[in-house]
Design a protein around this nucleic acid. Structure first.
Length: 569
RNA sequence: GGGGCGGUAGCUCAAUGGUAGAGCAGUAGCCUUUUAAGCUAUUGGUUCCGGGUUCGAGUCCCGGCCACCCCA
């Protein structure tokens, strides 16, 4: 969705990230090949906490294997000298367990139900008192009563209390049980019951230590507040803050609904290149990388669009893709350098078709994931601070009418100099309007600063000036505008949609005009594809991160992205 | 890029320029249905880093790093 306003607004971040090579990326989290359980690097040294070599030894295996080995075992943070008394104590408990012949890092534990599920089923009467369960989870709190102990066990399904008694576990078993710390993973076999206080619990008959935590977790009650730790070590955030975990579980549900929506309408899900020789489909600064074997540069994609249109040419009539885009621009509450974009195209449709699609999609998600079409944001006191009503049909407004409503009915009749004067002086947008702005960019600033932030309930803004959108078709009823909508919700643009340009000659002219002869190379291969004939089509893009912000009431994009971009420490 | 706010124990936070504290967590005890369990005792600090002012700096000044917010 190529638009003028996508031009970089901040050159600060450019350069910093340039030249980073793929191979610099950290090794991703690995999973055990044996049973699919997450396996932490710490495992490999737990058995022998001997002094480590300062550098990894040369490894005789292939490149791939040695990389994997390094990623698993020689993470530079592993056994850093940031130990403190708490870590020392946990290590000595580990050593004590090992001296008893216990390996507190297991490969597998077979559960038959989740912690929260077991609790729920007992509550609903589906499980009777005494029902046997095998559960596993992380210890989230601990109440020591001497010869009996209460612990809370948590997994993704929720929490359940477990109750361990000395007489059940025996002297030896109980002694080992007392080696447990907050944050350890254990597996438990036992029976469901309700305590005197009415708490649904599992009476422990046997237990297995599955993973000993060698570092203390964040406080159980206060949670984790330090934003830097929350983002850099998101796993701690997820452990400590249930509401954060729920945001990401809901995000998964939202993406799941998007997929089923499009599959249900007969769309084909596609995957197109993230590494592109010419980054097109938007006007944004790209990241550059280098392919060694091919000996040439590639750019990380800034949009999906041009490859999707190639697929329309190829006869895939209805298609969608959910994927990462990368823009080498500033970071903010609403911008992350990599972000997730949905694009969808439907041959023989137009922007009207796609307005219906966007509305149905978002309403369907809201209904299924949030259970409502009225999204309320509450503050810390629980008072509703913002309400977004998604009930169809959504408002439609022409771009020029909206501008006239705030900038004067004669806005488009006066001279461009007068428009610039009014914007800077009367509308007090002086700081927002650069001297280099063209006339339509001045109007664009009026829209962006004074109108878009007010569009809380969904509004399709239509009939945008043709200069803003070079990839769309001219409106039949107003040739100065294009058949385009911008769907604004929550004061920000959530989804643009077009009647896509399928005239290869008009497309070339528009791109040449847009490119301005400087920063963008023309994607000739794309233009050749159009010359082979692209069916008329409607297309949309939806920023998934911003959609999640809106639906989940999050004010910062960093709170809907698991690992937001941070400057390396 | 500019402005603002901040960085203190594992976590959440205090501390007029004058001995760095609390709660939770931890440790050692007591307690076999507790639940932010309780009771007793107790450990724990390169106050982000580097300079400076001062008899004395967590605090004031300068520089840097990191993060968040606002603006561009």
């Amino acid at each position: 969705m190529l638009r003028r306003r996508d031009l970089p607004s901040d050159a600060a971040g450019i350069g910093r990230m340039m030249g980073r090579r793929c191979s610099d990326r950290p090794t991703s989290n690995r999973r055990s090949a044996v049973d699919g359980l997450p396996q932490f690097c710490i495992v490999h040294f737990a058995v022998s906490p001997a002094p480590l070599p300062t550098r990894p030894p040369a490894h005789p295996l292939s490149h791939r294997h040695s990389t994997r080995f390094l990623g698993l075992c020689f993470s530079p943070r592993l056994f850093m000298d940031d130990t403190n008394a708490l870590i020392e104590q946990r290590r000595s408990k580990l050593a004590s367990l090992q001296s008893k012949g216990i390996d507190p890092f297991k490969n597998k534990f077979k559960t038959d139900i989740g912690c929260g599920e077991a609790r729920e089923k007992f509550e609903k009467g589906e499980f009777a008192e005494g029902h046997a369960v095998a559960i596993a989870g992380r210890i989230s709190s601990h109440r020591d009563m001497g010869k009996s102990q209460f612990l809370d066990l948590k997994d993704v399904s929720g929490r359940i209390q477990i109750y361990a008694q000395k007489q059940t576990l025996g002297d030896e078993g109980f002694e080992i049980f007392k080696h447990l710390d907050l944050a350890d993973f254990i597996g438990v076999k036992g029976t469901l019951f309700k305590t005197r206080a009415g708490e649904i619990s599992v009476k422990v008959e046997s237990f297995t230590i599955l993973a000993k935590a060698l570092r203390p977790p964040p406080a159980k009650w206060e949670g984790l507040a330090d934003t830097e730790i929350r983002y850099r070590q998101r796993y701690l955030d997820l452990i400590a803050n249930d509401d954060v975990k729920n945001v990401f579980l809901k995000r998964s549900a939202i993406v799941h609904e998007i997929r089923s929506f499009f599959h249900g309408r007969g769309y084909v899900e596609v995957e197109t290149p993230a590494m592109q020789p010419i980054p097109g489909g938007a006007a944004a600064a790209p990241f550059k990388t280098f392919h060694n074997a091919l000996g040439c540069e590639f750019y990380l994609r800034i949009a999906l669009e041009l490859y999707h249109k190639r697929l329309l040419v190829g006869g895939i009539n209805k298609l969608f893709e959910i994927g990462k885009n990368f823009r080498n621009e500033g970071l903010s509450r609403r911008h992350n350098p990599e972000f997730t974009m949905l694009e969808a195209y439907e041959a023989f449709g137009d922007y009207e078709t796609m307005m219906e699609t966007v509305q149905s999609l978002i309403c369907g998600i809201a209904q299924k994931v949030m259970g409502t079409l009225v999204i309320e944001t509450k503050n810390a006191e629980g008072i509703v601070t913002k309400t977004i009503d998604l009930t169809p049909n959504w408002r439609r407004a022409k771009y020029k009418d909206l501008v006239r409503s705030v900038a004067g009915q004669d806005w488009f009749d006066v001279s461009s100099e007068e428009r610039r004067r009014r914007a800077t002086e009367d509308l007090k947008l002086g700081g927002d309007i650069a001297a280099a702005y063209t006339d339509f960019e001045v109007t664009g600033a009026v829209f962006e600063k004074l109108i878009e932030p007010t569009l809380i309930n969904p509004t399709f803004v239509t009939h945008l000036p043709k200069e803003l959108v070079p990839l769309a078709k001219i409106s039949a009823d107003d040739p100065t505008t294009v058949e385009v909508f911008e769907c604004c919700i929550n004061g920000q643009e959530i989804s643009p949609g077009y009647t896509e340009q399928n005239d290869p000659i008009a497309q070339r002219q528009a791109l040449e005009h847009q490119a301005g002869g400087e920063q963008q190379k023309l994607d000739e291969d794309f233009l050749v594809a159009l010359e082979h004939g692209m069916p008329p089509a409607g297309g949309i893009g939806i920023g998934i991160d911003r959609l999640c912000m809106m639906l989940l009431g999050q004010e910062s994009i960093r709170d809907v992205i698991l690992f937001p971009q941070m400057r390396p420490k």
